[in-house]
Amino acid sequence: MNKPKIELHKIEKNKNGIAILKDINLKFFSGKKHILIGPSGAGKTTLLRLLNRMEEPTFGVILYDGENIKDIPVLELRRRVGMVFQIPIIFDGTVKDNLTVPYRLRVISHPVKQDELTKNLELSGLQSDFLERKASELSVGEKQRLTVARALINKPDVLLLDEPTSALDHAAGIKLLDSIKELNEVLGLTIIMVTHQLEYASLLGGRVIHLVNGTIVREQESEDFFLNSEII
């Protein structure tokens, strides 16, 4: 097995006095796909949001490449650990305007490379002629692909996906999963995806982490995990 990209040690997260995550010890491996599954309220999204410091754990330590994530400048960490949300959030303007946002956010502006934009679009399953289209006129599935492409502009090592298929119809969901698999294979991206849709979880493959009530109840490779489906 690869070396761990992200490690969680004794993570606890409380919100309003309620324990959302309890004593989580977990490793996400470099270049591997990981799926966090479990019923709603299990703490999957919270766990994901701890990894790019959108939220902070109440207790415990998270390491990124062996370094405490608190010691990595947070903006840098979020560029290395990209995130795609459940509902595709599209900014005003064209597809190109959306893709160039990460460039504009940098203190020292990086020149926009057209071939980088089209490459990332295509990797996310959109054609390069989408660049000049108005982003608000895309379908929900296309919008979600655009948010993936936009996250890729920062050249992350890890991509967090929070129920990325839940707002999409079945066909669009399958297409997005294919793109995510390709990103993992072509770019070697470490994928960490939250889903409650078992079909998508088994299609993506990789390591399955099953959370219930803020605790990991099982962690297994996808093939082994889905052999015995009554455990969910």
């Binding site: 790019n52 959108m54 903006l75 840098e76 979020r78 560029r79 990209g82 995130m83 949300f85 509902i87 959030i89 900014f91 946002v101 990460p102 956010l105 940098r106 948010t147 936009r150 996250a151 920062n154």
Partner: peptide, 13 residues
């Protein structure tokens, strides 16, 4: 809120 989080996740201040 969601738009702001999308920006933050991209490395925005």
């Amino acid at each position: 809120k969601m738009e702001i989080e999308a920006y933050l996740a991209l490395g925005a201040t």
